[in-house]
């Protein structure tokens, strides 16, 4: 079987596993959405029971799972009790917003980290290297939550940027370019937070894998042939150091998504994070499952992308 096909099947298995895990957790849990309703004296116990059976909550776990799986195939992803709507309609927009945020942040973080990491790997021990390592180790121990709050504070104090949400209230009245500008200005805080949170890890990995490669004999030989420094770094060393970095790209998705959840909540970005929080508070079971599945899907897609890049970068992988 083809390498990518195998990875794809693996990813699908993981998704199925994750959904089963979600249902298992839900099954262990004592409370449900209707318990909160039960506390409301205006709704009779009979109504609650009727609602429960309508949403299939009185069924055993496997039955509920199969029902849910069927609704996934129908493109509904279960039903939200709180919104009284199919989950997919809620998810689609939110997932898109999260993807936009994490996508831009990932792109920028790598765009900055790779050249910077290569540069300091080529000049280890110099002032800039020490400064980078020192500042990243401090940055590593500042949680995303604190970063986001701090940035928010700065922005609010200076009135430099709009705060909260994804677009301004008068977004619909704007022209096309103003719309993009508006969106971009709203992106600045969440993206900066995510970039600052993820840059240290990527930078350190780029540095260490480049330093590893620069020690290799073939680099020394190329150096002996008098190849220019930039060419040496980018044409010889970087491809050789690519594999672990591409793997890191896959791994780092998880941290990025988790960080994004927090940043979204703090900055009011209407992504999956606030939706999950809301659903958690109101015990909206299928929305929780849907959000977790979306985040898992992103993670698996990120890993698949990394696999594909790995394949492109290194044909040896095909043999595995």
């Amino acid at each position: 079987m083809n390498y990518l096909t195998r990875r794809l099947i693996h990813g699908i298995m993981l998704l199925i596993g994750a959904s089963i895990l979600c249902f298992l957790f839900a099954d262990f849990a004592p409370g449900s959405f209707f318990d909160e309703i039960k506390l409301n004296p205006q709704i009779s116990p009979e109504t609650v029971a009727a609602l429960r059976s309508r949403y299939g909550l009185d069924q055993p776990m496997p039955v509920r799972y199969v029902r849910w799986a069927k609704s996934v195939f129908r493109g509904e992803w279960g039903y939200s009790f709180a919104y009284n709507a199919p989950v997919r309609s809620l998810l689609a927009v939110r997932a898109g917003n999260t993807l936009l945020l994490t996508g831009v942040a990932t792109f920028l973080a790598w765009l900055i980290a790779v050249p910077w990491g290569i540069w300091i790997a080529a000049h280890p021990g110099r002032g800039i290297d020490r400064l980078s390592m020192g500042s990243t180790s401090v940055l590593l121990s500042v949680p995303e939550l604190v970063l986001a709050l701090g940035l928010l504070y700065l922005v609010v104090r200076t009135h430099a940027l709009p705060v909260g949400g994804m677009v301004s209230l008068r977004f619909d009245q704007l022209g096309r370019w103003s719309k993009i500008r508006d969106l971009a200005t709203h992106l600045v805080i969440p993206v900066t937070t995510l970039v600052l949170a993820n840059l240290p890890i990527i930078l350190r990995h780029v540095r260490s894998s480049m330093m590893e490669v620069l020690k290799a004999p073939f680099i020394q030989a190329a150096r002996g042939h008098g190849i220019s420094k930039a060419s040496l770094l980018f044409h010889y060393a970087l491809p050789a150091a690519a594999n672990p970095l591409i793997s890191l790209f896959g791994f780092s998705m998880g941290g990025l998504l988790s960080g994004s959840l927090l940043v979204e909540v703090v900055t009011g970005w209407p992504g999956l994070g606030p939706l999950l929080l809301e659903a958690t508070m109101s015990r909206d079971l299928y929305v929780v499952v849907g959000v977790v599945m979306s985040s898992t899907l992103f993670m698996i897609l990120g890993n698949l992308l990394a696999d594909a890049m790995l394949l492109a970068a290194d044909p040896r992988v095909r043999m595995q």
Binding site: G254, L262, L276, L277, T280, R283, V292, T296
Partner: peptide, 14 residues
């Protein structure tokens, strides 16, 4: 493979 904060919130949700 589950992003940890999502997992944490999901478990907490139940």
């Amino acid at each position: 493979v589950l992003p940890w904060l999502y997992l944490l919130l999901a478990v907490r949700a139940f």
